[in-house]
Structures are given as structure tokens and as C-alpha cells.
Design a protein around this nucleic acid. Sequence first.
DNA 1: GATTCAGGTTGGAACGTTCCAAGAGGTCCT
DNA 2: AGGACCTCTTGGAACGTTCCAACCTGAATC
Lengths: 333, 333
Amino acid sequence: MKHPTILDVANEAGVSKSLVSLVMRDSDRVSASSREAVLKAASALGYRPNAAARTMVRRRSYVVGVMVSDLRNPFFADVIDGIDMAVTDAGYRAILTTGNRAPERERLAIATLLEMRVDGLILASPVVGGEFVIDASRTVPTVIVGKAIRASTIDSVTNDDRRGAEMVIDHLVELGHRCIAHIDGGVGAGAGPRRSGYARSMRRHGLEDDIRSMRGGFTEEGGSTGMTDLLAEGARPTAVFVANDLAAIGALDVIDGAGLNVPGDISIVGYDNISLVAGHRLGLTTVDQPRHDMGRMAAGLILEKIEQDRPSASHVVLSPKLIVRESTGPPPL
Amino acid sequence: MKHPTILDVANEAGVSKSLVSLVMRDSDRVSASSREAVLKAASALGYRPNAAARTMVRRRSYVVGVMVSDLRNPFFADVIDGIDMAVTDAGYRAILTTGNRAPERERLAIATLLEMRVDGLILASPVVGGEFVIDASRTVPTVIVGKAIRASTIDSVTNDDRRGAEMVIDHLVELGHRCIAHIDGGVGAGAGPRRSGYARSMRRHGLEDDIRSMRGGFTEEGGSTGMTDLLAEGARPTAVFVANDLAAIGALDVIDGAGLNVPGDISIVGYDNISLVAGHRLGLTTVDQPRHDMGRMAAGLILEKIEQDRPSASHVVLSPKLIVRESTGPPPL
DNA sequence: GATTCAGGTTGGAACGTTCCAAGAGGTCCT
DNA sequence: AGGACCTCTTGGAACGTTCCAACCTGAATC
């Protein structure tokens, strides 16, 4: 028999299906003897409850779905870990799908979760946005991590990207830099605010003529092409703010390959503070985001929305923190 | 209305539920006019098929479940990407759960997938093994990636870890090293064969007295504690083979922190060839595994098993490839 | 000895699909 | 005109649970 059902267990144990159901959800109003008989039968048959059937009749799945834009970025591992823990503690389960930063695949990944009737949807730094996401949020509680969306139905957990970018520029200006370029995150979540925070801060320091934003992306590759383009353009900046750590790693490698010294010739700053950039080899100055907490908070918001269906949208904004390491220093003379 | 059903759509469109069902699975025997009416009604109501109901009656979910032991390791991102692509191309969908290298959580993650009645189960480098996994494989086609299990019901896709380890040792011996230590992967998938490959190769080179295996783990932290312990013991080896790249990064950082030179004082080798270690900063000599292909092959095996239920177990073993970079060199004089 | 009560157990309806056998209309052939 | 045969459409049963109201049994109460 492929998958024994509750009825098979009932037969084996000589009781009704209802009683088996009670035992499975361990109700307290079944006698010790029946409970034992049922459990014995269940394990003898290798019974496993069928979540699909359960979901149907309860019209709740007790599952939270998480769509992750980019599994390659270790940033998300911690966010997911936070989500998973909080959700598990509350008696739910988390499942993931991934979109690989491709809008079409992201949409499919989200649709999969919606069709499975997850009770809550968490989007970790989605590339897609707009109507599609808003539509989704109309049928299921939705939280976005890493980016905010203007819609009254969608909660968000972000760090203050604009502020983080400003802290970076302040730090560089303080070191004496004026010619500071930015390699952006393209269409990625949070890329916009970081870019505009950069520009705003530059203007605030009277450096509007030195604003220079290059196209990059939230990947190693994005960082390296951005840096390659930047170096090719001539008029080398003395510092570069790269949209995230992964891209900064790519950018650093291009600089190393060009025989330039960091921070002697050029200072580099990233964003995220993933553990890989903390070591002596990279020693990247970056902006820390409390990843694990972001995951926990996202889960908290979702659970709150599921269980008390709070009508209004919450937007949690966490404070970024500058982490200074060896990749930044005074500009060359 | 929270979730419109096929019946709501039928009412709206003025047809029977059966016809709506046919349109949804786009059957070719519905008239153009009804098809249009149904689609219009469906999108007006925001109808989304309920996968739980579908799974119930078809007794197939068209979903492949993937349990990933460690999302922090970028190695898996590529494996998952390969799985996702192959599975999607075949008309299935992939969902993930994660166990965070903790056996208890892994078991829960697997149970979640089984209860959802996934049609196939892929375990990416699970820490758990034994009865639990074998039980699972009795009810659903199962493939393990990164580790082999002796059971006639379980397929596996691995690289030849033992051989890979031997290639590492051969390389180091050729450079002139004799005192070569190993920081292992603990209980992680593939850790055993790499450890024994190391030991066997050392013996083969007549270096049995120099065998020294330290406890590590497949994480940065594991590598750094392993290396810290190793350095604390005195009698510093001239080369260390670390169980994977992530751990090697941790180990390198400890070495850097101790003021030692790589490869001048000590050579380091990793395993996996994740992109992060390829750059100038780390330049880690390592062993390449064809991650993406491993994912595709795992998916291929699962689909084959699902659709043609092949009875016997397949074990695919891929060839590792040594990638020599700057972290290895001749031993100090 | 009848009545109430509590503890334990039960069958049936419902959830939202798919599948199947069968029905409704048309067209075409003889 | 009658039948055969299309094409399109339909209602009902089934999938494996949960939930509910109802039932049974024996003990406690009057």
C-alpha cells in the first residue's frame, strides 16, 4: 500500500477514523488504551498524516511560505534561519521557493506558494513588485523583507538603507574622500534607497559634481562588471561604495587584478556585513544589518497578521550600523 | 470572499464546475467561447487553483521537495538551481525546507515535505541518515546529493570524495610536503570519505606517521576552531587539507591572525570550489565539484523514478577536479 | 429505579478539486 | 427520416482529513 490513510489505521486498531484523528491531534479525551492501540497501528503501518487533506478541511495549512530571491547570498541564510525558528516555535512550518533574481521565476515561485495555500507569505528581497505582489497580498498575509512597498496590505521589515548609505558616505568624506563612486544593486531590493542615499549624501557634502553611479547588481558578477566599467572610464575615484558585500567581493577582485592597492589607491565599502568579508583577507568596511532579527521580526509580523488579522500595515525599519575595517583609509595624496 | 473556488468561477461564467476544471488544465476540448468566458470570470474573481485539493484527488502533487542541510554554504545554491531548472522543465515544482545541520530540525524538515505528499524527495547533504531516511524512501522516491547511503531504495549523486581527497594529498606530496594535517567535516555529508581518502593516501605515500585529523565541520567556524586547535598543539604541519571551502576560509583567517604566511609557512587546500575562494584575495587551491550538474542529475534521477518507477537504485559518482591556486606551494625549508 | 452526567466513541457532512460515464445538440451520410 | 458520429458540456463520486452532533456506557445522585 503506497500511503496508508487514517482509515487503514482505524481498521488495524479496530476503532473509528474519528478516534484516530483525535489521537493524531493528540486530544485529551481519548482513553489511554485506545490511544496506545492507535499509535501502535499507526507506526506499524507507517502512517503519516496527509497535509493536503488536512489543509482542505481546516482551510488553514499552518505553513508559512518564503520566497527567496537569491540563495547565493549568505545574507538570506540568516534571515531564513530567523524566520524558520520563529515560525516553528509558533507551531507553523516554513517552506521556501526561490526565484533566482529572475522576475519570471519569482512569479512562479510565489504562485506555487499561493496555490499551496500557505497561511502567510514572506518575500525575501524580491525583484518583482507592483501589481503581482499586491494581488498576492490580498489573499494572504504578506511581509516583504529588504524592501518596502507602498500598499496598505503589505508589511515590511527593512533596514534604513538610505541612512546606511549616508553613514558610508559620511565615513568616506571624513577620511578625506571627495571623488566617491557608487556601484549600484540594479533592480534588486534596497538598491534604490541605497543609490538615492548615496546621491543625497553627496549633495549634502557639496559633492554633487562627483556623483557617479554605475550599474552593478547584488552579485559578485555585478560588482566586478561595475568595477571594470568604472576603471575603464578613467578618472578613477578614490573610493567606491558598492551596493552589497557580495558585489564588493567581485569589485575587490577586479581592483586586485588591476594591481591597485586597497585602501592605498582606492577605498571600498560594502553593505550587509556577511561573515565572509569580516576576515583578515577581505577586511571589508561595511554596513551591518541584523539579519537574524529581521527574519524573526518578519515571522512575528506574519504570525500576528495570521492570528489576529490586524488590518493596517506595519513597517519595521531597523537601524544600520557602520562597521569600519581595513578596506577604507585616507585617499592617496 | 477569501479564496474563490472553481464553483464560484463556474457561477460567474455560467457554466459547470467541470468545464472550469477543463479550462484550468487547458484541455483542447472546450469551445473557444466557453474558454474565454471562464478565463474572464477567473481573472475577475482572482481565482487560483487550490493545490491541496488537486493533490488529494490526483494523488500526485507534482512537487519535488528538497531538504537542504545548510543554506549558508553557497555550494548548495548551485545545486538547488540545477534541481529547480530540471524539475521546472519537466512540469514539476520544487519547494525547499532546511535543517540547519541539526538532526532534529532536519527530521522535521523532511517530515514536512512527506506530509505534503511531495512526489519526490531530494536530500542535499543531510546530516541525518539511517533508519529515518530509509523509511522516507519507502514511501516516496528519494535521492541523496553529496553522500551515499547503503539502501536499495535510495539513489545518490556524489562526487568521488575519496578520490578528490587523494588528489589533494598527491598534489601536496608532489610539492614536497610530508607533514600534512586534515581538518575534517565532522558529521557532515561527505566528511567520512574525505577523511578516509586523506588517510589512505597518506599511507600510500608512506606517511602514516604524519596522519593527523582534527575535528572541524563544514562551516567557517568549524574550520577556524579546527585550525586553532591544530596550531595550539604545536608541531605545526606544513600543509592542511580542510574539508570544504567554507571551513578553509575560517582556517585561513586563523592562520592570518597568527601572522603566518600562506603558502610560505603553511599550504591550505579546500574542497568545493565555491566562487568566493577563486579571487586574488583567497586564491584557494581546492577540488571542484560540478554543482549545477549534480543538481540536474539528482532531479533527473527523481523524475525518472517518479515517472517510470525504476526499482533499482542508481548511484551517480562524478569526477572531482583539482584546482590549483596560490594557497599551496612548496613547504618551508 | 429513574435521571443526570461525564468520559469516551462514532458516523456523516464538508472541504475543492479531478475523473468518468453519460447527455445534449449538431452535422453528415444513406 | 433515421441513425451514426462528432464536439462540447455536465453531474456525481472520490480523494483523506476535521468537525460536529449524537450516541453509548457506566457511575453518581436523588
